[in-house]
């Protein structure tokens, strides 16, 4: 007896809501934290990179426009970082469900990513509202947000499945993540402009799919130049590849997962 797709979607929704509620249950400001967290990060980074360090952004001369550039890069990063970190332990934290309830386990990383994407959506909405308030106009380029969010969700889900599955059999994945995240963060042009990467390291920046994802967000939100066809195709392929790899790992391990959690 396999649960039908409709049952799964329903359960996925329940799990996502449960995760969202759980994150804010008993907390003073509830879902408001979804907004507070990125805004605080934004203020912090803006202060450091405008008052202390000045990376010299060609597109962003004023503090305000620099903040917009930073925010457009920081938002997808926060979601990515949070999803993967939480996916790493999602099977172990929900060991009860996996071991004792017949349960489609892929929904656990799935709902983790979805709940984090919904935080991203809230933050994006706030950001778009601020942009509109400042300029008084909405650009059609915002439509690029759709493929950006889709690619991010699919890729994050794939990476999340990989990390979650691996962590069951190799509990020190955290150690790798602890090194991998700072590396990825600094390899992605979030706090520095893409052009400031020296020529001989451009390939590294280009090989990092997050570079293009951030570029896509900046194009959508701030009307910056689109990353170009080749990088976008590359980003899509990496996202899809991650998803396929994650799914394949899950298919191979789903039956024995409950024996190892």
């Amino acid at each position: 007896m396999s649960t039908s797709l409709r049952d799964r979607l329903f359960l996925l929704r329940e799990l996502t809501l449960r995760d969202l509620k759980l994150r804010y249950i008993g907390s003073l400001m509830g879902l408001f934290w979804t907004v507070v967290h990125p805004v605080f990060m934004l203020l912090l980074y803006t202060f450091v990179f405008s008052q202390v360090i000045r990376p010299g952004w060609p597109q962003a001369q004023t503090v305000g426009s620099f903040a917009s550039y930073l925010f457009a890069g920081l938002l997808p990063w926060i979601q990515f970082h949070e999803s993967i970190t939480r996916c790493a332990t999602v099977f172990i934290e929900n060991g009860n469900l996996i071991k004792k309830v017949k349960f489609p386990v892929e929904l656990l990383p799935g709902s983790t990513v979805l709940s984090s994407v919904s935080s991203l959506l809230v933050a994006l909405a706030v950001f778009v509202a601020i942009l509109f308030f400042n300029s008084g106009a909405v650009s059609l380029s915002l439509l690029w947000l759709l493929p950006a969010i889709l690619l991010q969700t699919v890729g994050t889900l794939g990476a999340g499945l990989l990390v979650a599955g691996t962590n069951i059999f190799m509990r020190d994945i955290h150690q790798f993540l602890a090194m991998g995240f700072p590396f990825l963060f600094w390899a992605t042009p979030i706090v520095y402009p893409p052009a400031s990467v020296p020529i001989r390291y451009q390939w590294l920046s280009g090989a990092n799919p997050l570079t293009h994802l951030v570029g896509l967000y900046r194009a959508a939100l701030l009307g910056a130049d689109l990353p170009g066809i080749a990088p976008l195709v590359y980003l899509s392929l990496v996202s899809a590849g991650m998803f396929i790899a994650g799914w394949a790992l899950l298919r191979r391990t789903r039956g024995i997962l409950s024996d190892y959690v």
Partner: peptide, 20 residues
């Protein structure tokens, strides 16, 4: 009650179990 979550109410847990 294997799938119950302690932070949620009895009612919420009934609905979650039903979903599983």
């Amino acid at each position: 009650g294997a799938g119950f979550h302690p932070e949620f109410t009895g009612r919420e847990n009934i609905h979650f179990t039903a979903a599983t």
